[in-house]
Design a protein around this nucleic acid. Sequence first.
DNA 1: CGAAATCTTGACCGATCTCAACTTACGTGG
DNA 2: CCACGTAAGTTGAGATCGGTCAAGATTTCG
Lengths: 230, 230
Amino acid sequence: MSRNCHDPQEKGRVCISKVPIFNHLEPDQMEEIHHLTHTITLERGDTLYRAGETSDALYILSTGKIRIFRVSEAGKERLLHILHPGDFTGELALFNESTHESFAEAMENTVICTLRRGALQELMKQYPAIAMKILGEFANRLETAEEQATRFVTERVETRLALYLLELGEEGSSDREVILPMSKKDLASYLGTTPETISRKLQYLEENRLIEQRSNRVIRLLDRGGLAKV
Amino acid sequence: MSRNCHDPQEKGRVCISKVPIFNHLEPDQMEEIHHLTHTITLERGDTLYRAGETSDALYILSTGKIRIFRVSEAGKERLLHILHPGDFTGELALFNESTHESFAEAMENTVICTLRRGALQELMKQYPAIAMKILGEFANRLETAEEQATRFVTERVETRLALYLLELGEEGSSDREVILPMSKKDLASYLGTTPETISRKLQYLEENRLIEQRSNRVIRLLDRGGLAKV
DNA sequence: CGAAATCTTGACCGATCTCAACTTACGTGG
DNA sequence: CCACGTAAGTTGAGATCGGTCAAGATTTCG
């Protein structure tokens, strides 16, 4: 556990205030919500939930990173997304009355706030804006999932990789250097390919002067226009 | 327009009562909602919305079928899903404040009820159960989208096709005969492949005594166990 | 610092896409 | 209601992207 904070409750309070779905509320309302949550801490490699389990809680990430992935009928993994502080998960099992279809695993030491179904429903009744925020978040995820699915079957790995790098580059990092937020193995899984192919395609992009691999996790985008056309 | 009903308003009323997100309401509440809607009719081939357009309405399908599809960066189409009476769409542009990313096109003559953003928000405030229903629906779609994306990159076309047929077969159709709800061209697009490959894979499944193609749109499942193992 | 995981590079193979020609199905209008 | 034309579906041959297996290099983390 972090040296900066011995009290998970404290982390929890920080957590709520950072979550987009709650950040429009007044401080005293946040405090009220905070009292409804429980705090969980996980260590690197721990599992938060696994496919097939039932659940009735929304998990809000306060510190750390969580890998959300699926396992196909054939036993292959696919990384769906990585949660960062302020993100939430568990919503599927929460709203559609069924079991988890994916796995959630801590990538590092992690603090999580949980909010039980009943409590969340009460909150949504009391503050309709919360429901709207969650709907907005769902809409974004749905949008992303459908776009990804479409890219998987319409674009080549090269293109998917280039688009991914461009999207990474959009968020800040003024110097057109992007930092991969995950291992290349995970990146391969996320982009629906293999580490070998990622390695080769990055090399290909580099040979074509579109990028420069500065280190394992750092890539400089040399030609955004060119990347967009790959 | 159908001979059975000259009045689109009438269609609209029918529509509301069939929509899962409203069907827990009392008749007089439905009447109230009905007054908030406008009715649109489309002919086969007409476009309801296209990618890039903004929108502030939820569209609820009363009669007909609507094809929802995306177009990739490279210009290839992918069919996301087909709306049937009672289904709704338009939610992405509605909840995330951005533009449509997909296209909606009537596959036959179609009647649609629209509900404007403001009206929907009022309804959700007044009847929190509506928000919960929409959340449940979103959760299901997200679930489906993520599963599809995963299958695209982890399963072969053969397997995706077999799983699709099995899922079709689950819903009723006692006689283990399934009726394809779309053309094979659309099916190919939906499953992320080409018509040629669909044709060949169906043939392959037939040669292996797993299915029997009775007509263009009708397939008999001969061996569900076998299909599941493809 | 060392073991284990990640990453890279090479060679090979196979699933599926593409292009092309032909056949079949269907909806549109006479 | 039928005929016609366009769209959908089928079949074949060829090309290729990217997955698999294997071995070696490098990084990461305890």
